[in-house]
Amino acid sequence: MMAQLMAIVRKDLLLEWRGKANLNALTVLALMIVLTMSFALGSDPTRLRLTAPAVVWVAIVFAAVLAFVRAYQMESENRCFEGMLLAGADPRAIYLAKLAVAALTMLVLEVVVIPTILLLDGIALGPRIWGLLPIAVLGTAGLSAVGSLYGRLTMAVRAREVMLPLLVLPVVVPIVLAAARASDLLFHGPAGQLGTWVGLLVVADVVLVTAGLLTYESIAED
């Protein structure tokens, strides 16, 4: 299973590397969301600083949902997904590979988007910036756990661009909430309750990845 997982991850990363269209488009989209939110919020620097953690996670979530649509769009073209199953790929390996690639893509996007908003809103984090790393990784993993499952589920649905966010967003409420709160505490303090939110992210990730692994097989062959 591990070899299959690595092979699919390699395939998807290679496709992403050769095309780059996906990551570039998503990064620009996320930056546009950040900009649009800033315009909508007004030019008051204090307000922008306070809303920064919320804005950044809204941008990440919406970009992520599109990433999940794209991840399966390329599989449905030329019936690639069926090909993987026919080649004997374990559905769980496909699920974990999709999860890993989506999470990696989103993390690259976050490396661009998060510093940008910190710069724009004049938030100086100093060494605390490393604290963002576990929050981003855990939050992105949780989003990808849901997105990789529901992306497969809506792969053949007519209105998948609408249906996927509709299905994903309510389920990822705890992840968005915990990630945004944790970032907020990191940006503006007090850092005392940070552990609670990171703990919640860990629990949500474990629950969602386990549930995804257990149920992916039953929808993989549709």
Partner: peptide, 20 residues
Amino acid sequence: VIAIIGFVDIPVVHFSVLWW
């Protein structure tokens, strides 16, 4: 699958909002 994931998620949602 949606029903099961939704149900599994509900306790996590509850705790997140409770702490929030």
